[in-house]
């Protein structure tokens, strides 16, 4: 039994195919080449223009025909409206023309479920940091609960805004990471952990106004924001008494963030897990796999009820596939 999943919450168009054993048969990722950030309409156009090619590639790589697809899943939210609508349209069309069930997947939950599938993590606390999203999520009383999140902008978004002001191309994270390696002086930036939540806008302003060396600003940006996220993750671990940390999202490709999270976990006697490359960033396979789990739990939707949810909250989803 094959599930095909569409990812399209932001600048990435992803189409992935998984089987019912949890094998990822293909995972095609195509990124809209933004240089100064994502324009939602252009991202949507990019997804539309590349849709049929990407589907064909995913089918070819999975060595399967379109008639073998049994379930269609798509990222229903949260994300940019135009991008979400484009992949939702493709998903509905495929579901109707093939006569197979349709499932709408919460993007943040998909990051957690793919991590549970491809790593040894069973019941982790997920630290999910990408451009638009920054959340700490864990399973508790029938839901994936948000134990901490950004109160303003996503961490990746903050790094991109900083990068844009300094002529660093989008996404700015990798270049900031390289510059940070040459920095060593810790500049004071507002460390803003409020209860279980974090906020980044004050740090951005302080970093933009700083006249210190670029390398030191990048270094301090990383040291400060990553420590905030690691602290909130540790709180969630202590609160839920879980002993696994799962990392997901584009920003966790940063080695310093990974090191901080795993140091924290080690000091608490917990384990850290990171899905490999293409399964860690936005991708279609994670949508397909979560869609498969949801389908098994009877969570398919009709086309009439498949409207997108740009502000879809992680804890809105009833998790019928877990006990």
């Amino acid at each position: 039994m094959y599930t095909l999943g569409f990812e399209g919450t932001a600048h990435t168009l992803g189409v992935g195919i998984v089987d019912d054993q949890g094998n990822v048969l293909s995972n095609i990722i195509l990124t809209y080449p933004a240089t100064e950030g994502i324009h939602p309409r252009e991202a949507a156009n990019h997804h539309a223009a590349n849709m049929s090619d990407t589907i064909s590639r995913a089918l070819r790589e999975a060595d399967t025909g379109v008639d073998d697809i049994d379930v269609i899943a798509f990222s229903q939210g949260p994300g940019l409206g135009p991008a979400l609508r484009t992949v939702a349209t493709a998903a509905r069309a495929m579901s109707i023309s093939l006569g197979v069930p349709l499932v709408g997947v919460n993007h943040c939950i998909a990051h957690l479920e793919i991590g549970r599938l491809v790593t040894d993590a069973e019941d982790p606390v997920l630290l999910y940091a990408s451009g638009g999203n920054t959340q700490v999520i864990a399973f508790s009383r029938g839901r994936y609960r948000v134990f901490g999140e950004t109160l303003d902008i996503g961490l990746g978004n903050m790094l991109d805004k900083f990068g844009r002001a300094h002529g660093i191309p989008f996404p700015a994270g990798p270049a900031i990471e390289q510059k940070a390696k040459k920095g060593s002086k810790l500049i004071e930036l507002p460390y803003s952990v409020k209860g279980m939540d974090v906020s980044f806008s004050g740090i951005l302003t302080a970093a933009l106004n700083s006249d210190e060396a670029m390398e030191d600003i990048c270094f301090s940006l990383q040291e400060t924001t990553f420590a905030m996220l690691t602290e909130v993750t540790e709180r969630a671990l202590a609160h839920t008494r879980k002993s696994e940390v799962l990392l997901g999202g584009g920003v966790v490709r940063n080695k310093r963030l990974r090191d901080m999270a795993s140091t924290m976990a080690r000091e608490r006697g917990a384990e850290t897990y990171v899905p490999d490359g293409g399964l860690c960033v936005d991708n279609g396979a994670m949508i397909a796999w979560t869609g498969y789990l949801m389908y098994q739990a009877g969570m398919e939707i009709t086309v009439e009820n498949s409207h997108i949810k740009p502000n879809h909250r992680t804890d809105d989803v009833e998790i019928l596939w877990r006990n």
Binding site: L186, Y191, E223, A227, T230, M260, A261, T263, M264
Partner: peptide, 13 residues
């Protein structure tokens, strides 16, 4: 003391 944090940041926090 949190080993993951920069020592200066850690002591200030």
């Amino acid at each position: 003391v949190k080993g993951y944090r920069h020592p200066k940041l850690d002591s200030e926090i």
